[in-house]
Amino acid sequence: MAYSEKVIEHYENPRNVGTLDKDDPNVGTGLVGAPACGDVMRLQIKVGEDGVIQEAKFKTFGCGSAIASSSLATEWITGKTVDEAATIQNSQIAEELSLPPVKIHCSVLAEDAIKSAIADFKQKRAARKALEG
């Protein structure tokens, strides 16, 4: 199957590959997987006090489309507030990368990863706020 140019571009030059300290209170970690194909994806965000995502990193073990979807996701969410980032839909990622129907699940995985990283971050921040009273 042929990959679109944008997928190949992200695959060859993935943005923001790496790891953030998952124990940092300002870091949210999302870990998701696709039982249909065995891909795994980790997406992490570092959020400032103003709620803006300062940095996003990912690590994906999967096909080119999964790597491109997560790479694009980190690019899109950096500089957005967590609430803005939470509105990103898999269909937007699929459209940007011209993913064929059989690869749509890769964009779903990326959306899940964003949401799960945000949920983790919010949980941490809520727990911290509760401690601070």
Binding site: L31, V32, G33, A34, P35, A36, C37, H105, V108
Partner: peptide, 10 residues
């Protein structure tokens, strides 16, 4: 199920 079933456990 196109997604391959329920979400994997953490």
């Amino acid at each position: 199920d196109e997604r391959g079933g329920p979400k994997a456990s953490p």
